[in-house]
Structures are given as structure tokens and as C-alpha cells.
Design a protein around this nucleic acid. Structure first.
Lengths: 215, 215
DNA sequence: TATATACGGTACTGTCGAGTTTCGGAACTT
DNA sequence: AAGTTCCGAAACTCGACAGTACCGTATATA
């Protein structure tokens, strides 16, 4: 699902005032904000329009329904994500993971997690959305984990027969659970615990002694 | 929040036809079924009444609102749970966990997980419910994990300084993630993977060689 | 300039669902 | 028997919201 203006723009330049392409981002971001705050069912079109300082007609000129708008907003989340060609490479698996725990990354992840929480109810009724949401929110993070693990295998740091997709899902699982079920925000300390107490042991590595006192 | 009849029954036997206490369970179970199927926002009072073969007035005679009914239904889930005094004791941490992986237990857990998914949207708006849901769905399972881990510490199987609540949350996290985010049902094989590849390594134990080939 | 479409804003329509009321009948107390 | 409260069922009220229509205005083509 793509905004109508992008399609028609590629066709012939029609008469009349053209659509303002800059309104798309405002509307989509407003939708994501509302989604994160009150969830899909709590969100109204009027809320989104007000947040974006737009009229409702402007929204319906671009998307045929509330559901389509939300799906598009979720799908567009992934674009502003991490650059896969500029991932840190510290030489150790632990170092790579820690390098990803910067404040902006954590904050961005928390926002996407809230959006995800707002989508759960819709996902149950709309399986196609589940795939979109997964591709936008989950997949990019899991892909990073996957690449770090593959590099660790390549350099002989960890065994080659580990189940990469499975191990990659540990951290997102615990972050999701803490956010959605416990209602507690995830901070750097918690991510460090997941890394040193769960992920590293599961691939056969031990955390540095300072973080894991041996008595 | 308790059904009104239980309160008044304890008082004086009033005149008129008494409330039929057996209707309570039918209604609450119907609410849980609908909740698991379509979530809180997708659920209507008429659906619940129809499923329970009851009139709407019968529901509103017991609970003042849809929200209260749902909260009560969730709170009552825990009653039909596991008997904490009859937990298996196999002598090893791994054996204890495996002994809990019986088909009925897994199936029951999956149902509660679906109910939990249906509640996510409500939890965001209603923090008090988060505590209720946690106490009904999450806490009993986590408590079992906690006891198994404590026993393992007492018998010297694992180190005494492990973070029991943290380790106890690994399995529920991964089960939740797989169910709600991936949309894949949890089976015994997946639980075994969580146990042998994640939980046991995180407490310093290794799975039997047969399940973890050393090449 | 004439025409066409977009814009923000507002008013409108139609549907859906929470909660209430009413009904005939059943079950209890006095 | 009389009075009271419950039951399932259906009709009803009322507010919220998705989606539409229209306004005056702005910006494009011809």
C-alpha cells in the first residue's frame, strides 16, 4: 500500500493543485504516535488528523480506510532504521552487542515496542498485518543479532552449529515481555543482563569476571 | 471485584428468587473464550451473553460494566491452576522442568497466553488490570520456575547467587514472543529448546550430550 | 482568467455497541 | 396466595466513531 500521490506523480502531471507530498510524513508520524499512546482500537481518525494539523479529507484522499493507513504507517517505520552497512565491528560478540546499546537506539526501540503493543489486537484479526509489523519492527533488530552471531562464528569465537534464528530471538523476547507484560521500560542495565546472563551463556561464552563474581 | 451474589449470599437470605451461582462460571468462561478469540476491543457484551446462553441483564446484574467483568474473568483464571503442593520433584532441575511439560499444561498455557494477548490493549489504558493479569497468568508460572530454581540451589545443583526472578522470566518471555509476535503455537519441542539452549546454560548447567552434539 | 484539484475545517450520515428497560415466566419467602 | 427477585430474550436509548459532503481558500494547468 503506497500513498496515491506517489503513484499518480509517476504518471502524467494532471491539472489542479498537486498533492503536498510533505503531508504524508506528518500524517504517518502522527498515526504512529497515537498508535503508541492508545493502541489501534483507541485511535480515532480525528486524533490523527488533529495531531498532524490536517483535515480528515486529506487523510482519506491518501488512504481508503483507517486500517490501510495504519498498515502503511507501520510499514514505513522500517525506513528510518539502522544502516546495515555501518554496523559496529568490535572484534568480539559481546563488544558488538554493547556497541548497539546507545541511548538513541534504545529509545527508538522502546517507541517501536509501544507501537507493536498497540497493534497486538489488530494482528489477531488481521494476519497480513502481522507480517508487515514483523518486517518493520522485529526483523531489522533480529537481522542485526544474526549478523553479529554469524561474524562470531566466522572468526571462531563461538561454535558453528548454534541455532542463529533461535538465539537471535532471545533478546527481543525478553524486551517485549518486560515492556508489554511487565509494563517496565527497558534500560541499558537490563539489556546488559540479558547479554551477560542469557545470550552469552547460551552460545558458550562467559561474561567478564567483573560482571559475574565467582565468589 | 467479586460477583454480587457471593457477597449478598453471605449476608441475610433475602426474599425472591436467589441468583443462580452456576451462571457465574458459564459467563466468566464465555468471556475468557471470546477474549482469547477477538481481544478486549473486539469483544461485545452480546457475544458473551450469547456464548453463555444468558441475557444481558443477567450479566449486568452481576458486574457493573464490561471492564469489571473482564477484570473478574481474568482474576478467576488462576483458581483452576496448578496445585503448588503437588509439584513434581525429580531430583534435577532439568527433570523438574520437563515434568511440567505435559500436554494439558501446555494447552492450558496456550489458552492463557491468547487471553493475555487480548488484554494488551486494555493493559496500556488500565494499569490496575496489568497487576491482576500478571497475578493470574504470569505469576503462577513464574512461581513454579522460582521454586524449581530454589530447590536446585538448596541441593547444590546450581550456584546460590543466581538472579531467580530474572531467570524465571526467560521461559515466559520466549513463549509470549513466539505466540504473540510470531503467531506460532508453542509445542513441547520448543519448550525443550528453551530449557536446554537457554535456561540451563544461563544457570551454568549443560544439557545432556544427546541433545547437544559436541561434533 | 477559467478550470481543476488540494488544503484545513466543519457539519453531516450511518452503524455499532454499552448499558437500560420491559416482558412473560420461574423460583423463592412469608 | 401474594410479593419479590431472578431468568432469557428482545426492544430501546444514546454516545462514539468511520466515512462523506461541503465550505472558503490556495495552488496548479491551459
Amino acid at each position: 500500500m503506497m500513498p496515491l500521490d506517489l503513484i499518480e506523480q509517476a504518471a502524467s502531471p494532471r491539472v489542479g493543485r498537486p498533492m503536498d507530498a510533505t503531508r504524508d510524513d506528518d500524517i504517518l508520524n502522527a498515526a504512529l504516535d497515537i498508535l503508541a499512546e492508545v493502541g489501534y482500537d483507541g485511535m480515532t481518525i480525528d486524533m490523527v488528523a488533529a495531531r498532524a494539523r490536517a483535515g480528515k479529507a486529506t487523510l482519506y484522499r491518501r488512504w481508503p480506510s483507517k486500517t490501510e493507513l495504519v498498515i502503511d504507517a507501520v510499514a514505513c517505520m522500517k525506513n528510518k532504521d539502522i544502516d546495515f552497512d555501518a554496523l559496529p565491528d568490535t572484534g568480539t560478540l559481546r563488544g558488538d552487542f554493547i556497541a548497539m546499546m546507545k541511548a538513541p537506539t534504545i529509545k527508538d526501540g522502546a517507541q517501536k515496542m509501544r507501537v507493536m503493543a498497540g497493534l497486538v489486537s489488530l494482528i489477531a484479526r488481521n494476519p497480513e498485518l502481522a507480517e508487515t509489523a514483523r518486517a518493520s519492527v522485529i526483523a531489522p533488530r533480529a537481522e542485526i543479532n544474526r549478523r553479529f552471531l554469524q561474524r562470531a562464528i566466522d572468526r571462531g569465537e563461538i561454535r558453528a552449529d548454534i541455532d542463529i534464528p533461535f538465539i537471535s530471538s532471545i533478546s527481543p523476547s525478553m524486551v517485549t515481555y518486560r515492556t508489554m507484560m511487565m509494563g517496565v521500560p527497558v534500560d541499558r542495565e537490563y539489556l546488559m543482563q540479558i547479554l551477560d546472563k542469557v545470550v552469552l551463556p547460551s552460545v558458550g561464552l562467559v561474561a567478564p569476571a567483573a560482571l559475574s563474581p565467582q565468589r
